[in-house]
Design a protein around this nucleic acid. Structure first.
Length: 806
RNA sequence: GCCGGGAUGGCGGAACUGGUAGACGCACGGGAUUCAAAAUCCCGCGCUGGCGACAGCGUGCGAGUUCGAUUCUCGCUCCCGGCACCA
């Protein structure tokens, strides 16, 4: 053992040994319980950032912990390799998207390895590899044939100068990021996955995800947005009727206007005849496409000049068109009740529309349910009863229909970009829209020699576009759009189980490894990615490729890594390069610090000074064990048998630590407190005389190193070998001796009116009467009690507290 | 705007089921060691008052429930994440 902690050598040697022995490759083994640990795969941006370090260290700690506990662990890694940044980089750096991406993959792979992650690289996947996306195209075809994919037009951001579709991210303050042109809304045909067919199941099965953070399931629940209500028809002279969806039929007497979405068919028809309406709709089209932009936009509207009649009392109601009504939800039209809906209220105030209260309330606008007023024969009913009765009456007359609605919309997957998985559709003038034949898969992305700025998002290669129709054999044209990159990340966890399978999408291995036992990733993926992955799991099940319905058993959503209060980013110049840290302190210190600095699920404020503390902690253990090793040599001690210690305090401290660390890692996933306990234990060992307690200190260090090894694997492997001459890889996680946790003495706190006045050290389980006696003998307690007669009551919690209330 | 989360010393955080607020670490101050520095070791460290014993105050703000609230309830403020074409 070297006198100084030489992390560079230790880490280099360990990593090369692990690689040589292929230590972390995983195979099906029916003698062990399998455990599949998955961290969300990275986008290969080129440089590892602290968020990756955090994500992958968490996954690695869990993997190593589970291995020590006898599980057959699989921890794979791969690359979410399609996406926009590759195209941007290609334009900026005069490279090609594939060259840029594969270059990044190779440099990020070595960065990941320098962290000492116990990854099974034999299962590596890159989603831009044809052997991966071939099966995505195959799957697309199966879904298409099952009718789970359809085409419809939808709105995109259009940059009129660059003549290209923009992602929401590329629209800054309503302008294209490159051209600076005012962005327009444009309708184009796109393919959609029918995720709404699965809305009910996706909603219902959230209940079974007991090991997911409740905030994530709650966000998904709200996103799916299941609600019960009525579709109500308002009769209308010119257009026969206008249907609206409402969850608050009880407020129908309070309806003072109807509002249509700007892209509602009636709005569109009216715009052809009326220039003002046309201008109004055009002005709305200048706001961004994203829901956030639309919701933040000022509420605007225009009166159509038309009226409709309220089905409950035939009252004539004005019809407006407004930007706060979304075509994508419900009927694209609403019955507005300003007295009981805040958005309607704001709109009615702005345009001086009548506000009529129909639920009892002291406020001008109250969205809460209550007792009906101003509602004719339904007055004094509760909201819920009124909904039932009004619903019944209108339904009888075919004016309303009970409906269950979801806020969830179908998933549009067409992207007008180059660097993505080609959609395997062929447009034939003869046969229409047909799938590419399965034998022709994969539909390869056309190679480019030079990345074309003018047409960055459209494939112009004639050799790609021109093809033969698989049905009739005549000339046809290939679909030019690619798929949303979320499609690739919706099934990669399944493909890891059989990455080399080239005859089918998935084979039987998938049924051994799935579901993923522990999934780890950023909280920013709480809705979209996790919902799409759940959706795909159900699709794969229904096609018969897998048996499970939910992909991820346990979910850990890690917080972001911040510096100076905000997300690390190049533009803010507040990044910390993990490579620099590893160079300066080693991977073990970097891993230890990032796990110690904050709870995994919370955001982590980066501190340059804090990492010094973690480094110091490792150096301290190193030096202590080095000295202890010397002591063993001097005294020529060789065989230390693992006998129970006679030192009661030592066994208590050791077992308390084992219990705490095990529970913290396994159940609570509270890694920062697990490390704190290990630090306390190191402080404790330092405080005992090692010459007089050789055996205790030896076993103390031994157990300590095992428990620390998931966090700092290289360090522990090396030091363990030096101390014991054994291989830490052969060890098991230590077990708690429950007996050792029983203490003979306890501290009981004496309070007066809930304020601590004294502590009493006393035998465990001492009864209340004796503690009371002691308490009333304490000077510090009596000082706050003038007269024993004032004591109103005494609260006693065994081994904890005696509270005297006066 | 809507949905979700957070706020505790100078800083990161701990307190798991309502029961001693501040574990562990950083920073800082004092001391030891050293020619000196770094490293290391020891001691102190919420705020206010007090020589001290000790007392009062204290978990974003305002109320409430309770013998007792960082923890539960209601109402706010600020910060962070998501909002369907960033990944």
């Amino acid at each position: 053992m070297n006198e100084n902690y030489d992390f560079k050598n230790i880490e280099r040697n360990c990593q090369s040994n692990w690689q040589k022995t292929d230590l972390f490759s995983s195979k099906k083994d029916l003698n062990k319980k399998k455990y599949y640990v998955l961290s969300m795969f990275p986008y290969p941006s080129g440089k590892l950032h602290m968020g990756h370090v955090r994500n992958y260290t968490i996954g690695d700690v869990i993997s190593r912990f589970k291995r020590l506990n006898g599980f057959n662990v699989m921890q794979p890694m791969g690359w979410d390799a399609f996406g926009l940044p590759a195209e941007n980089a290609a334009i900026q750096n005069q490279t090609l998207p594939d060259e840029w991406t594969f270059g990044n993959i190779s440099s990020m792979k070595s960065q990941l390895n320098s962290l000492g992650l116990s990854l099974d690289w034999g299962r590596e996947i890159a989603t831009c590899d044809p052997s991966y996306y071939k099966w995505e195209q195959w799957f697309f075809i199966q879904l298409f044939k099952k009718g789970l994919i359809y085409k419809k037009t939808s709105i995109v951001n259009w940059d009129p100068i660059d003549q290209t579709v923009l992602a929401n991210e590329q629209v800054i303050d309503g302008r294209g990021w490159r051209s600076g042109a005012l962005v327009e809304q444009k309708e184009i045909p796109q393919y959609f996955f029918k995720i709404t067919d699965y809305a009910e199941e996706l909603d219902k099965e959230l209940e079974n995800l007991n090991n997911w953070p409740s905030q994530v399931t709650l966000m998904q629940k709200n996103w799916i947005g299941k609600s019960f209500g009525f579709k109500v028809d308002f009769q209308q002279k010119e257009f026969e009727k206008i249907s609206v969806f409402t969850t608050r039929l009880d407020t129908i007497f309070g309806v003072t206007f109807l509002a249509l979405a700007p892209d509602h068919p009636i709005s569109k028809k009216l715009s052809f005849e009326n220039e003002d309406i046309q201008n109004f709709i055009d002005s709305i089209k200048k706001t961004g496409v994203s829901t956030a932009d639309q919701a933040k936009a000022e509420k605007k509207g225009i009166f159509t000049g038309l009226h409709a009649s309220n089905p409950i009392n035939n009252e004539l109601i004005p019809i407006w068109i407004s930007n706060y009504v979304l075509m994508a939800y419900g009927e694209g039209a609403i019955m507005a009740v300003p007295a009981h809906d805040e958005r309607d209220y704001e709109f009615a105030n702005k345009y001086s529309i009548l506000i009529r209260k129909v639920i009892e309330s002291n406020n001008e606008c109250s969205p809460e349910k209550g007792i009906l007023i101003n509602s004719d024969r339904f007055n004094s009913l509760s909201s819920d009863d009124a909904i039932d009765q009004i619903g019944l009456e209108l339904s009888k007359n075919n004016l309303a229909e009970k409906q269950t609605k979801y806020r969830l919309r179908d998933w549009g997957i067409s992207r007008q970009r180059y660097w993505g998985c080609p959609i395997p559709i062929i447009h034939c003038t003869n046969c229409g829209e047909v799938c590419e034949s399965e034998t022709n898969l994969p539909v390869l992305l056309p190679k480019k020699n030079k990345f074309d700025f003018e047409n960055q998002s459209i494939k112009t290669e004639e050799s790609f576009i021109n093809c033969k129709c698989p049905e009739c054999g005549r000339s046809a044209r290939r679909e030019k759009d690619t798929m949303d990159t979320f499609v690739e990340s919706s099934w990669y966890f399944a493909r890891y189980t059989c990455p080399d399978e080239n005859k089918q999408m998935l084979n039987d291995e998938v049924n051994y490894w799935l579901p993923v036992d522990q999934y780890i990733g950023g909280i920013e993926h709480a809705i979209l990615h996790l919902l799409y992955a759940r959706f795909f799991t159900k699709l794969l099940r229904d096609i018969g490729l897998i048996k499970i319905s939910e992909p991820f058993d346990n979910l850990l959503t890690q917080g972001m890594v911040l510096k100076d209060g905000s997300k690390m980013s190049k533009s803010k110049g507040n990044t910390v390069d993990p490579g620099d840290l590893i160079e300066k302190y080693g991977a073990d210190t970097a891993r230890l610090f990032i796990m110690f600095a904050a709870p995994a699920e919370q955001s982590l404020e980066w501190s340059d000074q804090g990492i010094e503390g973690s480094y110091r902690f490792l150096k301290k253990i190193y030096t202590q064990i080095y000295k202890f090793n010397d002591l063993l040599k001097q005294q020529n001690i060789k065989n230390l048998s693992e006998e129970p210690s006679q030192n009661e305090e030592f066994t208590y401290q050791l077992n308390k630590t084992i219990e705490k660390v095990t529970d913290d890692i396994d159940r609570r996933q509270s890694f920062n407190t697990a490390i704190a306990s290990l630090m306390e234990f190191v402080n404790y060992i330092s405080s005992i005389n090692s010459e007089k307690n050789i055996s205790d200190v030896y076993f103390g260090y031994k157990k300590l190193l095992i428990m620390l090894s998931p966090f700092v694997p290289h360090f522990c492997e090396y030091v363990f070998k030096a101390l014991t001459n054994e291989d830490i890889k052969e060890e098991n996680w230590p077990k708690v001796d429950k007996q050792a946790l029983q203490r003979k003495k306890q501290t009981v706190v004496i309070q007066v009116n809930g304020k601590v006045r004294e502590n009493i050290e006393i035998d465990t389980d001492t009864p209340q009467s004796i503690i009371e006696e002691k308490a009333f003998a304490c000077e510090k307690v009596l000082r706050f009690i003038n007269n024993k007669n004032e004591v109103k009551k005494i609260i006693f919690i065994k081994n904890k507290i005696l509270n005297i209330v006066i």
